[in-house]
Design a protein around this nucleic acid. Sequence first.
DNA 1: TAGATTGTTAATCGATTAACAATC
DNA 2: TAGATTGTTAATCGATTAACAATC
Lengths: 220, 220
Amino acid sequence: MDNKEISQAVIGRLPRYFRYLGELKDEGIERISSQELSDIMKVTASQIRQDFNNFGGFGQQGYGYKVEYLYEEIGRILGLEKTHDLIIIGAGNLGQALANYMNFERRGFLFRGIFDQNPELYGKKIRNMEVRPMEEMESFVKQNEIDIAVLTIPKAGAVKVAERLVDNGIKGIWNFAHVDLNVPKEIQVENVHLSDSLMKLAYNINRYESESIQTPGSSL
Amino acid sequence: MDNKEISQAVIGRLPRYFRYLGELKDEGIERISSQELSDIMKVTASQIRQDFNNFGGFGQQGYGYKVEYLYEEIGRILGLEKTHDLIIIGAGNLGQALANYMNFERRGFLFRGIFDQNPELYGKKIRNMEVRPMEEMESFVKQNEIDIAVLTIPKAGAVKVAERLVDNGIKGIWNFAHVDLNVPKEIQVENVHLSDSLMKLAYNINRYESESIQTPGSSL
DNA sequence: TAGATTGTTAATCGATTAACAATC
DNA sequence: TAGATTGTTAATCGATTAACAATC
């Protein structure tokens, strides 16, 4: 409804709020102030209030926020009351791992099919789905109105597969292939580049080590 | 050597530079200007130059950057010439998928062991390693001087396991458990919260849809 | 040398934090 | 009402982009 664009920095924090509020709710806590939430989550109270106020006022002056209400509102903002139909492209280890991860279903992400180009895998049961040949991907996406494709194939084929998905009406791609996809800007892409993440960890480990060796005054 | 702190925003971009430069090198391209790289990577030339200059001058005025040299320098910054010994905690689908992912080894991340608390999995071969019981984790970390632990266990146990790892000298944790770990600040943590990532994708899909419906003038 | 392109300073933009008036 | 805490404006900080002098 609201028309001002929300920054991706804010969006990126919403799932974490959602998680903490869910936990507070499960603990039976009814109200919380931005300051209390700040202490728990280790972010400033100011940021919490700013973030929430991007979407309108969820709190009440002098009282704070109602945990359950806030939890539901953030879920609604994230679109979790809607369901999404998704397919997995690539039935390797990672594709199978994601297919078997039940928690996504809980949030409305419904696993509808899994595809691979390796004939040896055709018909293999993963969760309750049989692996289908890649050739069936296009028609399947159309007929089942698939929203989201999860790309867990090697990077060599990923760019082309993404184009085929786009041509058949996919709305979003969750991309685990180690390559940047080239799709129209109305198609949403969320990249999970695992090796990039691991390299970042390595950098931070190395940096900390060399820092603590060389800090003046820390010697001997 | 240098003492100014590099921002995580910059560090986060290094693996992507590294990837593109590796591809350019493989294509046999010897030199590149920040403007050319800008066109390929879709980031500003200014940002590229600023980023590189955090680490000293890698280029040459009037010429540009030598691809191979730049590639190697970034690899060095990321610490990829060193090796890291890692273990995986949790031999479920995701743990096995990561264990089988060969590409990490290529970058010096050496898979040394995998642990689980489920006795049915003990001794099961994953890649070339047998699944070990959780009880052996501490001694294994110490004896083999493990740097990095990959946490692919449910969130319930993750916080405690992380503490045990820290007590035994781990330097970094690659955390796939859907919980924030509570470790001393000298321990590096890199979180991969898959469901957060998927929620972000869902938000962006929904947002785009409602926007294109409501944009003034697009009505029919 | 002239042309190209870096390295670096300055300007802008956006995100975070601080402050406080509004109000429950 | 008085106290608490939000919603929101203003101040600050940091990151990105633009501009240009240095120099290959």
